[in-house]
Design a protein around this nucleic acid. Structure first.
Lengths: 144, 144
DNA sequence: TATTGTTATACTCTATAACTATA
DNA sequence: TATAGTTATAGAGTATAACAATA
């Protein structure tokens, strides 16, 4: 593995500041005050990746187990996920999304995306192409 | 102005999740426990945009004035910024970076970028091009 | 002993509401 | 009255350390 080049260090610096500010705006953009962005993200993972244990969700979301405990407690008390016992290991429980959770996820995703999409319509086709190409790279950067 | 197209809604959704996770990882990557990412971001703004009032920094950083009050208080008590009185308006003070602040900023930026740059070396030239092109678009998205 | 998850605790980050000082 | 900034307070988000239950 080579050392970071000067160009990479500059890119890293610019990317870090750009991501901080954009994420700050996305997080503050609360649509429904009943659910937060972190809860929504965990709910999206449970919906997409099927029934999972708490540890598995924490690993996918890249947070520590105690953080996920809190998120899951709030999702469960709101009725958006439900737990069942693991057949072989009584330490674990299996967490899955409920129909109400699916409804909430769909509605919130639509509302939050609308806020972002409204800003995106002001961007050129060229800008959108650049963002679209970067999403896949960012995904790898955020989950490695 | 047109309505968001289906393609824009999908891009918005994918971008939102990618940004959340990547930003989460960047924020948790603490190098020096003496300074936080938000403090560093404000310090970078004061360094780059010259002497500013508290309100101006808050506007550039896109946070509310009370949030900036806290950030500036910590930066000032650490000796990384200093205040002087505004010549015409005694409600305001003028905030500028100190030499110690400049040193801290250079050192911290280097250390934090190293973490990101180390990951970037594993990416292809094509990936880096995509990220580089997106940075400018993200900047506009985060500061509009 | 090792693993899974939770509880206890603390710190960062940010906001709104109420207030002070100045214009 | 209006504006710039601060103080008071609270909630979201996350972590580490210590613990309990189970494997």
């Amino acid at each position: 593995m080579s050392q970071p080049s000067p160009g990479q260090a500059e890119l890293a610096s610019a990317l870090r500041l750009a991501l901080l500010r954009t994420a700050r705006r996305l997080r503050s953009q609360r649509v429904n005050t009943a659910v937060t962005l972190s809860q929504l993200s965990a709910l999206a993972t449970v919906c997409k990746c099927g029934p999972l244990s708490a540890g598995e969700i924490a690993a996918i979301e890249r947070v520590q187990p105690p953080s996920m405990t809190k998120i899951l407690a709030s999702l469960e008390s709101a009725g958006w996920v439900q737990r069942s016992s693991h057949p072989d290991d009584r330490r674990q429980s299996i967490i899955e999304i409920t129909p109400a959770g699916r409804d909430l996820l769909a509605e919130e995703t639509r509302a939050r995306d609308e806020w972002l999409a409204k800003r995106l319509v002001e961007f050129s086709a060229e800008d959108l192409r650049k963002l679209g190409e970067a999403v896949e790279v960012l995904d790898r950067l955020g989950s490695e």
